[in-house]
């Protein structure tokens, strides 16, 4: 069994007393793109935050492994430096901090103490990535997400992902709030970053994103669990027939499996 994967094992988590994840298992091998689909309230975004270590959630059992190493219990920044990246559904504004300085600080944080990031190398790399993602040069002198349109916020996330070169990236509802043109641009950015050295988990409510980012596997999430997995055609079926039939047919089975454990 390969250890080059992002592995979620029978994860249970709650916010306060309320269980959110109820035995979720998932394996994303490096080099693959998986998609999680599901209704609103299925717990998709929560899963992303829990993996990243958001302090509001408590993991009650199960594990999350990054290339075989458990990351539960680690601070969010430690998980990030180990190679986990989360593209936020709602990226936060950081007034007064330019994108260029923010990414620079993030890269600096990955260097050993006493070592300084070489400024000229950094800008060379930044400009190369910006060109590759068709991001205009003046973009990075703006404050992080401040006054950005939905599309700009998502491009800012993709640029950060390109610069930080994570081993695993979770893209949380990257399509939300985007018109079709912005969706194409952002998807092209994601596709440009696909490759053998990265595993991606794309979380989405709509199938349309998967027209542009074609996944290797599609998982359906309901009530804190994966109830069905399949190839990209599953997404098309969901689009055509809705979620109800999956939940009816497979939700009960998943519950039985969970109870049997």
């Amino acid at each position: 069994m390969t250890t080059h994967s992002l592995s979620i094992r029978d994860l249970h988590a709650s916010i306060g007393d309320k269980p959110i994840l109820k035995g979720l298992s998932l394996e994303i091998p490096k080099g693959q793109v998986h998609a999680i689909m599901g209704k609103n309230g299925a717990g998709k975004s929560t899963l992303a935050k829990i993996m990243a270590g958001h302090p509001d959630y408590t993991v009650t059992s199960g594990d999350v492994l990054l290339d075989g190493q458990s990351i539960l219990g680690l601070e969010p920044d430690v998980r990030a430096r180990l190679g986990l990246f989360l593209a936020f559904q709602y990226p936060m504004e950081i007034p007064g901090v330019t994108i260029a300085n923010f990414i620079r600080a993030a890269l600096q944080a990955r260097l050993p103490e006493g070592e300084e990031l070489e400024a000229t190398d950094y800008y060379a790399k930044l400009y190369a990535k910006m060109d590759a993602l068709s991001v205009p040069r003046n973009f990075t002198s703006r404050s992080v997400n401040e006054g950005f349109s939905g599309g700009e916020k998502k491009r800012c996330e993709i640029l950060q992902m390109a610069m930080l070169e994570p081993s695993y990236a979770v893209l949380d509802e990257t399509d939300s709030g985007l018109d079709i043109d912005a969706l194409k641009i952002v998807s092209a950015g994601v596709n440009a970053l696909r490759g053998p050295n990265i595993g991606m988990l794309v979380i989405t409510h709509y199938q349309r994103l998967l027209d542009y980012i074609v996944p290797d596997k599609v998982h359906v999430m309901s009530e804190g669990r994966i109830i069905l997995s399949g190839d990209k055609d599953l997404a098309l079926k969901l689009e055509a027939e809705g979620y109800d039939w999956v939940e009816k047919e497979h939700g009960a089975k998943a519950t039985e499996r969970a109870l049997a454990v």
């Binding site: 990243a52 270590g53 958001h54 302090p55 601070e75 969010p76 920044d77 990030a80 430096r81 990246f85 989360l86 936020f88 990226p91 936060m92 504004e93 950081i94 007034p95 007064g96 901090v97 300085n101 923010f102 990414i103 600080a105 993030a106 944080a109 990955r110 404050s143 950060q160 930080l164």
Partner: peptide, 24 residues
């Protein structure tokens, strides 16, 4: 949430705080 966002990029909590204050 701002601190979590910055931490998710690899900055320690203290570094994130410093950066936000300097931004202010």
């Amino acid at each position: 949430e701002q601190i979590f966002y910055m931490q998710q990029r690899g900055l320690s909590e203290a570094a994130a705080m410093s950066l936000a204050v300097n931004g202010f």
